[in-house]
Amino acid sequence: MQTLLLSKDQVKGLIGMRQVIAAVEDAYRAFSSRQVEQPDYIGIRLPEGRGEIDFKLSYHQQAEMISMKAHSGGFTGNPEAHGVPNSMGTILLFDARSCALACIMDGSLITGLRTGAAGAVSVKALARKNARTIASIGTGNQARMQIRAIREVMQIDEIHAWSRTPENLAAYKQDIEREFQIPVIIAASGKGAVEKADILITTTRGKGGLVQADWVKPGTHIVAIGTDARGKQELDPELFRNAKIVVDSIPQCTQKGETVHPLAGNIIKIDDIYAEIGEILLGAKPGRASDDEITIFDSTGMAIQDNTTAGSIYRNALANTIGTFFSFIG
């Protein structure tokens, strides 16, 4: 068996956001169907604060595909010292029938794409059908990716954006309006943005409750992206008391997601988590029950999303004869 090698440019040309959204939906359905093995990820922090590298593994039983993603970050001196980016990713795909290495691909784009797609999947499943206005708390790369994905599943009339950094806000407004022709209104405060939202997206590295419960109007859908590790927090835990709580993975979100904080404060119990989003996609549980309901999607990100997205890219590469084959095992 030969191994396929795909560069970053090749990966970029082999998949579009709609296909990533479909791949993420497949991931969620497989996970909630108990078709996935996904060990806890392993991280190594390099000495002297150089940065860190994480390794995430998953097995997709139906597709007979095993993935391993290595993703580094924080190496701020890399471009000058080593001529490489400060953050890099690589994905290995193994044919689970033999465990032979099927593909090595650049994974730098995949994490951002599948995280954006996760927000879009939650909007399809949980947002009001007449939702048109987005509030973005945070204006970095993932905030942009959320808009790229969500615009594939709904019409966005306007975005109200807020960040602590005025330069970031100005750049976000310019980028979004240029790329999508969607008006971006710079809010004077986080409260000012949130109060306008039909859909609220949080994509910060927050260390406290940036969004207060009394800012959020009835019927809002919240896409909580930034809290994916202990010590991070974006939402007031009181928001969870009367909301419909949907997560990507109950084990992950109760250990390192936004849901950790209301659990720790005894505001909710684990039984108050309504569903994993895969259960809603499978039809095992209904989504939004009324236009007044506040829904929260707590997304910590899962290795199976990398698996299904990379698998889709691999199949596209084979179908279009893209990439370089080499004999890895002789």
Rank of each mutant, 00 (worst) to 15 (best):
K232E: 10
P47V: 13
Q305A: 12
R178V: 12
T300N: 03
S312W: 00
A149H: 08
V24N: 05
A310C: 13
N307P: 10
P85L: 13
F328W: 07
F240W: 07
A22H: 07
D198C: 05
Q305N: 11
D95A: 14
E234M: 01
F240H: 09
I15M: 13
A187S: 15
R178G: 05
Q174P: 01
Q142C: 08
A224Q: 06
Y274Q: 01
D26F: 02
Q305L: 09
G219I: 05
W215A: 11
T115I: 07
A118E: 02
G283L: 06
A187N: 12
V260C: 08
P218A: 09
G209H: 04
Q142Y: 07
T308H: 02
K56H: 11
A131N: 09
T139N: 14
V211G: 06
T202D: 07
T203D: 01
N320S: 15
I156W: 03
G73N: 08
I66P: 00
E52G: 12
S299R: 03
Q142G: 11
D292S: 15
A319N: 14
K69F: 10
C103G: 04
T321D: 08
E258C: 09
K69C: 06
A310L: 08
A171K: 12
T133W: 00
V24H: 00
E195D: 11
V247M: 00
R45D: 15
L239C: 08
E48N: 15
I15N: 06
N316S: 13
N316E: 03
M154S: 10
T203F: 03
K196A: 10
G311C: 06
T254H: 00
G89L: 05
N320E: 11
D236C: 07
R148V: 13
L200K: 03
I150G: 00
R205F: 09
D26T: 15
P237A: 11
A120M: 05
